[in-house]
Amino acid sequence: MADSHAKMTQATPQEILISVLAGLFAPLLAIFLIVMLVLSIQAKHKPDTSSEAAQKATLERIKPFATLAALDANAPKVEKSGQEVFEAVCTTCHTPGALGAPKFQNKADWGPRIKQGYDTLIKHALEGIRQMPPRGGDGDLSDTEVARAVAYMANAAGADFKAPEAPAPAAAGKAADAGKTAAAPAKPDPAKGKAVFEGTCVACHGTGVAGAPKLGDKAAWGPRISQGYATLYDHALHGIRAMPAKGGNASLSEADVANAVAYLVTEGGGKL
């Protein structure tokens, strides 16, 4: 008797795979078409360049990496206050107490130093001492700025030092006049100037390099001495021709420069 139940045909693995792919084709095609539609719509839109945010973003992208600032070389220097010098230079070491520097406002650190006196602390700050470089490492600081910074730090730890005041407007104007000769410090000491000469000036004045008048050469020094000590001091302080300001040693104080000039003048046959 014939079997009344039809036997179901089993599907092969290949047929199953084809069926799955065929079922996924339609959804994938629909997703692809939607994505293409969105992209085509966005391509027709122009970027917003009118809004303030868009303009700021554009300026940020095209701004240069650096800018050049033109400064007036003849403009008088505006000297910083003690606090400004501290915040710009001294805070690096004196705030954390790095390299043995007395910490700002720490009375235990500053007490023994304050006892040495204001003049001694200024001398150490100008010339450098132990780990601290001359002028805190900033050769552009003037003697007055250094003195103000010393007073600011010492007074914050209990001292009562009087910082140098700003010069009067008339005096400041005269100092800024490039045509004026700088006033030399009173009573220069040739004996002290010898040490400055041997540490700095000898490089040129010991050999006569670059046209520098040699030490003791009266023929070379005669015309210069006739210009007057104040003029020679001004040249040494600010530089002239091949000679840089302070002989290339920015850590020299004005008194050091005055003493060195006095030594060279006397050795060249001049009198103070």
Rank of each mutant, 00 (worst) to 15 (best):
T266E: 11
K103G: 06
L24G: 07
L99C: 01
K174F: 09
P47S: 04
N74S: 00
A166H: 05
N106E: 00
K56S: 09
A75R: 15
D119G: 09
A70P: 00
I62P: 00
P164W: 10
S19K: 13
R148Q: 12
N155T: 00
A175Q: 05
T144P: 10
E84L: 01
F32S: 06
T181L: 14
V78W: 03
A159M: 05
L21R: 13
D140L: 14
N74P: 00
A159N: 03
A101V: 13
T95C: 00
A22G: 15
A159L: 01
A260V: 15
V146N: 14
H5P: 00
V20R: 13
K187N: 15
H5V: 14
K46Y: 05
A6P: 11
M153H: 12
G248H: 02
P244G: 03
G137F: 04
S50H: 12
T49C: 13
F25H: 07
A2N: 03
A163T: 08
Q10M: 11
G239N: 03
S51W: 07
L264Q: 08
M132D: 03
Q10K: 12
I240Q: 11
A184Q: 04
V35G: 11
V78K: 05
A57T: 09
Y263W: 08
Y118K: 14
A70F: 15
A242Y: 03
W110T: 00
D140Y: 11
D256A: 14
D119F: 08
P47D: 09
M132S: 06
K271G: 04
C93W: 00
P244H: 01
G139K: 11
V202T: 08
G139A: 12
A171E: 15
L264C: 03
A54Y: 06
A88E: 02
E60H: 09
F86P: 07
A242E: 13
L17A: 10
K214V: 05
R148D: 10
V202Q: 11
V78T: 03
L272S: 02
M132E: 01
S251Q: 07
A98I: 06
V202I: 14
V261N: 08
I34P: 05
T95A: 10
A73Q: 10
T231Q: 14
A57D: 04
K44A: 15
I225H: 10
N259S: 15
P164H: 09
T231H: 12
F86Q: 07
G111V: 07
F86M: 06
